Simulated assay, not measured.
Amino acid sequence: NLEVLPTAYMLVNEGEVTSVQYVSQTVPLPNSKPDLAKATALAGLYMGMKYFYLDAGSGAKSPVAPEVIQGVKSVSKNPVIVGGGLDSLEKIKLAYASGADLVVVGNAIEKDSSFLAEVLNNKVLLNLSLHVN
């Protein structure tokens, strides 16, 4: 009884080898080419993708560029999820301001467990509404 969520997974960074790139043996879309990410998202939309997950990779030094997020959001109003390299409130706020509907924060919390509390305590600053089910 699981709902299938057709999700386009898009690895995006500037050539930094991350664990997901190593394991999946994929070449990331360059952060410096937002039009390429936009075209890739459009192709995914035409193939029936309902969600877009833009990932810089676990522990990435740089997150997905705002221009890439904006480009993907410009071709679809479907939810955009952004992860990888989001290790500060400023980076999270920029991801949301660029069009992210949801962010994934993992390694930053593993390195500093107080970071989750910092994010939750600043939900107004981040313009977030958090829902717990």
Rank of each mutant, 00 (worst) to 15 (best):
L2Y: 12
L2G: 12
E3H: 11
V4F: 15
V4Y: 14
V4D: 12
P6F: 14
T7G: 03
Y9H: 11
M10V: 11
L11P: 01
V12W: 00
V12C: 04
V12N: 04
N13F: 03
E16A: 08
V17I: 14
S19M: 09
Q21F: 05
V23W: 07
V23C: 07
S24C: 09
T26S: 14
L29E: 02
L29C: 01
S32V: 09
S32G: 06
P34N: 09
L36H: 00
L36P: 03
A37H: 06
K38C: 12
A39I: 02
T40H: 03
A41H: 05
L42F: 15
A43N: 09
G44D: 00
Y46D: 12
Y46E: 14
G48L: 04
G48E: 01
K50R: 15
F52R: 00
F52H: 00
Y53Q: 04
L54D: 00
L54I: 02
D55R: 05
D55Y: 04
D55V: 09
A56R: 00
A56T: 05
G57R: 03
S58K: 10
G59H: 08
G59I: 07
A60N: 00
A60H: 03
K61E: 13
K61M: 11
S62E: 13
S62P: 01
E67R: 10
E67D: 15
V68Y: 00
V68N: 02
V68P: 01
I69C: 02
Q70M: 08
Q70K: 15
G71E: 07
G71N: 09
V72N: 00
V72H: 01
S74D: 07
V75K: 05
V75Y: 03
V75L: 06
V75P: 05
S76P: 00
V80T: 12
I81F: 14
I81H: 09
I81C: 10
G83R: 02
G83S: 07
G84S: 09
G84L: 06
G84H: 04
G84E: 05
L86K: 07
S88D: 04
S88Y: 06
E90N: 11
K91E: 01
I92E: 01
K93R: 15
L94M: 13
L94T: 14
L94C: 08
Y96H: 10
G99M: 00
A100T: 04
D101I: 00
L102A: 08
G106S: 13
A108S: 07
A108K: 02
A108L: 05
I109L: 08
I109W: 01
E110A: 09
E110T: 09
D112H: 12
D112E: 15
S113L: 13
S114F: 09
L116K: 14
L116Y: 13
A117R: 15
E118A: 15
V119K: 05
L120Y: 04
L120K: 10
N121A: 13
N121P: 03
N122W: 03
L125S: 13
L128M: 15
L128R: 13
S129W: 06
L130E: 14
L130Q: 13
H131L: 13
H131Y: 11
V132E: 10
V132W: 12
N133S: 12
N133M: 07
N133F: 08
